[in-house]
């Protein structure tokens, strides 16, 4: 039993340390009506939908595919880069997906196939899709959100999560 208590403590400490996450948990608890909260405690994390985006066979190297995730109001891009990158999935480890709303002011970005960046028409910010959406120049104060991908046995690609807050939302899942 000693071990169980220790686990609880570790969990509690981690919970308290992440300021923004801790309050996020609280947000859900209050939105739900009181009786429901009693019946089923609110979850600490957002539940993301698992959405099929495409099949590996549909993708061609450096040809961006427009996607929407986690819902129709959140545009994104699915890319096969032609070389394995950190966070890439699929047989070649080169498939990645990002939100295309610039995390500065929310303009819809286009993919620049020459240097593999997402470019913002609003205020010229640029993000490197080979480096996990790293901003290489611009005014955003976070990197571009990257969608978490999974590929099943049939080669179907699913989005199931997101690394950062998507522009224009206080919660990634509305």
């Amino acid at each position: 039993m000693k071990r169980c208590k220790g686990m609880v403590d570790v969990g509690r400490r981690q919970f308290l340390r992440g300021g923004a996450m801790a309050t996020a948990g609280a947000a859900v608890a209050a939105v739900a009506p009181a009786q429901e909260a009693k019946a089923a405690p609110a979850l600490a994390q957002i539940d993301y939908p698992s959405n099929r985006l495409a099949n590996v066979a549909d993708l061609k190297v450096n040809e961006p595919v427009d996607i929407e995730y986690p819902d129709a109001d959140s545009p994104g891009v699915l890319l096969k880069l032609g070389q394995s990158v950190e966070g890439g999935v699929g047989p070649d480890g080169d498939i990645v997906a990002f939100s295309t709303l610039c995390p500065h002011k929310g303009f819809n970005m286009s993919y620049n196939g020459e240097d593999h960046t997402l470019n913002c028409p609003g205020h010229f910010s640029r993000f490197d899709v080979e480096a996990g959406g790293q901003q290489t120049w611009g005014h955003a104060t976070s990197n571009v959100p990257q969608f978490t991908l999974r590929v099943d046995d049939k080669g179907d690609i699913y989005a199931e999560g997101c690394s950062d807050l998507i522009y224009g939302r206080m919660s990634n899942v509305l």
């Binding site: 309050t23 609280a26 957002i46 976070s142 690394s163 950062d164 807050l165 990634n172």
Partner: peptide, 11 residues
């Protein structure tokens, strides 16, 4: 590799 905030909701 880009720094990920891993924050997907704010108060």
């Amino acid at each position: 590799m880009a720094y990920k905030r891993q924050i997907d909701r704010l108060p």
